[in-house]
Design a protein around this nucleic acid. Structure first.
Lengths: 198, 198
DNA sequence: CCTATTGTGGCCCATTCGGTCCAGAACTTG
DNA sequence: CAAGTTCTGGACCGAATGGGCCACAATAGG
């Protein structure tokens, strides 16, 4: 009965996500979002509500996608240890450094907004908890596969891996040399995952 | 000959720093800054220039003060290892968690602005480099004092300590339970500074 | 083919933004 | 005490902000 949407919702959300990601929440205007989405005001407000709701929607989608990808890696990876390794080193995979410079939408948003927007802080807690849970499973798997000292606490190490990744994200966002960042990431990883006692 | 300033410059800069710290750069208006500083527009613009210059000034002062405090600790601390310990655990010292929730002005600003404001990214690189240098000296001292395995690379470990602190800052800013954060910080520190081989 | 319903885009608005400017105040020097 | 210089606060500005609104378009059901 109703007239159908003329735009691709997920494409629009990705374009808007990129805009928020590049400029930050406060520095992104509704005009920017209208431009990158190609929609008119009525359409955008009608579909997603105001700027804040739209942002939270985009942030949640982003987190869900990241978490899903991590879970899929945990299922498909040859070894549990590889999941953690890739989690920590991921940022340094792009040799141009663009990925490192961009950082993480959640980390950026949390730094900008957690003090003024409780929803963002809550979203970050939720997301980091879920990540730690998956990493814990990956580390338990690594122990059973003989790739990790059985004496270490997987849950503790998972949190430490999360801290390491967050630190690398923060450091990478300074725009420092990507090769230097890769060296730091390697040494952070080495401290995290000592080879099991023979 | 000139009429003297009627306000205390450093007090005004601290009030403005707090405002930027709590709200972020973009979300802080000049009206906010006039209110917390108690000055009129002519005075504020005359003394510090526009919003951007004022922010960069505040950020540099903040970094300089932090770096100076770290250097002083390196001089006054009983042991080099204590400097690194306090550097990593510092955030968790406040049992109310307010310090952890607030995070670090530089880290917050870098996350919000480094992509759009090269000066902020450059300031972050400069500051983190200087911190790593002081931490390296502290770790070398720790080695000579027998508190750290002589085989480890002090410079590498200094970078890893910086990454750990940045990660803890990011995690603390989510507003998670401060005691849980302290546990994570302890385990991150333990991975960073293994007791020297006996 | 007509009507009901929803999508669409842009016009419009009040508010707030960062920044300029200026008239008068305050102080130092001669 | 007079002159010169800087400081001070607020009036003022044009532009941009987030958001409301509405006339019209397009579709589905009768």
């Amino acid at each position: 009965m109703p007239r159908p949407r003329e735009f691709d919702e997920s494409r629009v959300l990705l374009a808007i996500r990129d805009e928020f990601w590049d400029k930050g929440y406060a520095a992104t205007s509704m005009d920017d979002l209208l431009r990158v989405s190609g929609l008119g005001k009525g359409s955008l407000y009608g579909a997603f509500g105001d700027k804040r709701s739209l942002f939270l929607r985009v942030l949640r989608d982003y987190d869900d996608a990241n978490l899903l990808a991590l879970r899929e890696r945990q299922v498909s990876a040859a070894r549990g240890i590889d999941v953690v390794r890739e989690f920590v080193l991921g940022l340094t995979g792009d040799p141009t450094g663009a990925v490192a410079r961009r950082g993480c939408l959640l980390a950026n948003s949390n730094a900008e907004l957690s003090a003024s927007t409780p929803d963002v802080a809550a979203e970050a807690r939720r997301s980091y908890d879920a990540i730690a849970t998956v990493l814990t499973a990956a580390l338990e798997r690594a122990q059973s596969e003989g790739d990790l000292d059985p004496d270490i606490d997987p849950s503790e190490t998972a949190r430490a891996a999360l801290v390491a990744q967050l630190g690398l994200i923060a450091l990478g966002r300074t725009g420092m040399d990507i090769e230097a960042l890769a060296v730091v990431a390697q040494s952070a990883l080495a401290r995290l995952l000592p080879t099991p006692a023979q």
